[in-house]
Design a protein around this nucleic acid. Structure first.
Length: 593
DNA sequence: GCCGTTTTCGGCCCGACTGTTTTCAGTCG
């Protein structure tokens, strides 16, 4: 049973408990479900290694919930949940995902009309049976039908890259209004989560009506959920929900803090405030009725005794404690990047010549770029064999002799075969500056086999970097099933660099894995994986933020170093080789990044 | 049911909007 299924069971129990108006327990189950969804490790694996006891190590999972999970894993069922289902045989999870329906209304609908599914709900609404119920007069029926239509549209989360332009465009339009003083995009966009559920827009304005009108009449708006003097909620045509909040200027920082989230971060801050006999809301930090901080996030954190926490870290995964101890990391920034270690050219499936790409990299202020075209097995991408790579290396040497202000490194994106071996001969790899290895085939191997395969590649003394380690494509291809903790440990042992691939549909490593890698002392790089010159902006646009979400400092990222120092962190080449880069001593190679 | 720099009991984030139970419950984020 996987994490999502366990979380589903817990969430279902939370809803049933809420129907019975049980106090506090529903929240406990809900919190545990959230914690399990946030885990990057299979709960089943923890449980197999450490039993029920290991389950209690999961935050928000205590004695009661760990025993229920144990039963789920042992038997595939939970007797208590089955009893609940018998008592109120409704599809609560499905019904609760209808906007406006919660546990109480679901119970009412079942008690009065025996509604168990969304289909039955729709029928009853169409037949006009719902409007006869107390609590469901008049408009409720319309609202339910509309909510069902939305539900059927399937509203997945949206990759951040598909949301940013929209967010910035809405921001710009509101900023263009004369009566608007301040505008900010908050929410998971500001935290740079890889996928975005909804859009949160904040406005301080002298005449709020203008902003509300402009917002609700945008061509992107498909439906208006609610409109008030301070809060307006809409559904956009792309299926996303967007909220507009009108904020007094003196509370703008408090609102920005609140709407940036995450929810868990907010709750912890509010509880901290409570402990100090203060109250934190989106309007400010209050002692009694007196506002003591609110105009900026900085002054609120300071008043709580915390250093300013960058939005990317606000997930309640230790950042609040670190901010209290002056132990927050000094996160990597866009300007720290000096080079790019993965780019494809016309030699395989890219669109630019090597020279064009090098000039574009130079224009972006980079000092070096590695050319890493695909290799032999990837025939579809016109992968290079050894002879073709040799020809390419000669061209690179000629370009380096001619070009100023940018250094081109030789390299390749070598295929990792099914058994973990590589598709290019060792003696040629020994001549390259940067050897990246990547999975492009056999994505569906069983977990054990995939883990062995990746570890074998990582431990190969000729592999400098594991490119896009999960081989996922957001919304298209799932991550390969492998024990990534074991891969990260292997990278730490063998001195292999793990890539943070900044292609917006990859973003791979994930934020959680970056953090794990940083903690394990693994070297990382942030690459564009460019296939044209425009892609070279991806590391600064997306990659840096993913690294920051994983608590990475410049010292964790090798391409914040100048070329020679960066090369010295890669694995040493055998003595016979190393044509284009100087032989590296063991000591230089061991230099810490 | 969970949790702890006020710890093993006694709390559990806070506020907005909707509908309509004309003072509040339900839902949402």
């Amino acid at each position: 049973m996987n994490n999502r299924e366990i979380a589903r069971a817990l969430r279902e129990m939370a809803l049933f408990l809420e129907m019975e108006r049980v106090q506090f327990k529903p929240r406990a189950f809900e919190k545990a479900a959230l914690a399990i969804e946030a885990l990057d490790k299979p709960v089943e694996e923890l449980w197999r290694k450490g039993g029920v006891k290991a389950l209690r190590e999961i935050p928000s999972v205590g004695e009661g919930i760990s025993e229920r999970i144990d039963e789920l894993l042992r038997t595939g069922r939970c007797r208590e949940l089955e009893t609940m289902r018998r008592k109120t045989p409704v599809n609560v999870l499905e019904l609760a995902s209808i906007e406006g329906l919660g546990a109480q209304k679901i119970k009412l609908l079942y008690d009065a009309l025996k509604i168990r599914t969304v289909d039955q709900l729709e029928k009853a609404a169409r037949a006009g049976r719902i409007r006869r119920l107390a609590h469901f007069k008049g408009k409720s029926e319309e609202n339910i039908l509309r909510a069902i239509a939305f539900y059927r549209e399937a509203t997945a989360r949206h990759p951040i890259a598909t949301v940013l332009d929209l967010a910035h465009s809405i921001e710009a339009r509101l900023r263009g209004l004369r009566t608007v003083q301040r505008v900010a995009i908050a929410g998971s966009v500001r935290r740079w989560k890889e996928t975005i559920g909804d859009l949160d827009v904040l406005v301080a304005a002298t005449r709020p009506d203008d902003a509300v009108r402009a917002f609700t009449s945008m061509p992107e708006v498909a439906h208006l959920y609610a409109k008030g003097p301070t809060k307006t909620m809409v559904r956009l045509r792309n299926g996303m929900d967007a909220d507009l909040r009108i904020i007094p200027d003196r509370s703008f920082g408090a609102a920005l803090l609140y709407f940036t989230g995450s929810k868990a971060h907010n709750i912890k801050l509010r509880r901290m405030a409570q402990e100090k006999h203060l109250k934190l809301s989106e309007y400010g930090l209050f002692r009694g009725r007196k506002l003591i901080a609110g105009a900026t996030e900085e002054e609120i954190y300071a008043a709580l005794g915390l250093d300013f926490i960058p939005p990317e870290l606000r997930e309640d995964t230790g950042e609040i404690e670190a901010a209290g101890n002056g132990k927050l990391p000094h996160l990597v920034e866009q300007g720290d990047l000096r080079g790019d270690l993965q780019a494809q050219t016309k030699w395989s499936d890219g669109t630019c010549s090597i020279e064009e790409l090098a000039e574009a990299a130079k224009a972006l202020g980079l000092e070096y770029i590695a050319i890493t075209d695909h290799t032999r097995d990837l025939a579809m991408a016109r992968g290079a064999d050894e002879a073709k790579l040799r020809r390419q290396n000669r061209e690179i040497h000629q370009l380096n002799a001619r070009l100023r202000g940018i250094r081109i490194l030789t390299g390749a994106e070598v295929n990792i075969r099914r058994d973990g071996s590589l598709d290019i001969a060792d003696d040629l790899l020994d001549q390259l500056d940067v050897v990246g290895a990547a999975v492009h085939t056999w994505f569906d191997l069983p977990r054990e086999e995939m883990t062995r395969r990746l570890i074998r590649a990582v431990e190969n003394p000729r592999v400098d970097i594991l490119f896009h380690p999960n081989a996922r494509q957001l919304g298209h291809r799932a991550a390969v099933d492998a024990d990534m903790d074991a891969v990260i440990d292997a990278a730490a042992r063998s001195g292999t660099v793990l890539e943070i691939n900044a292609q917006p549909d990859r973003l791979d490593l994930t934020d959680v894995q970056v953090r794990r890698a940083v903690e394990a002392g693994v070297k990382l790089c942030i690459d564009s994986d460019a296939h044209n010159s425009g892609d070279l902006r991806f590391p600064a646009l997306y990659g840096v933020h993913m690294a920051r979400r994983g608590w990475a400092e410049p010292g964790n990222i090798i391409n914040t170093l100048p070329a020679e120092k960066m090369l010295a962190t890669l694995k040493p080449r055998p003595k016979t080789a190393a044509k284009s880069r100087p032989a590296r001593s063991r000591a230089a190679s061991a230099a810490r990044v």
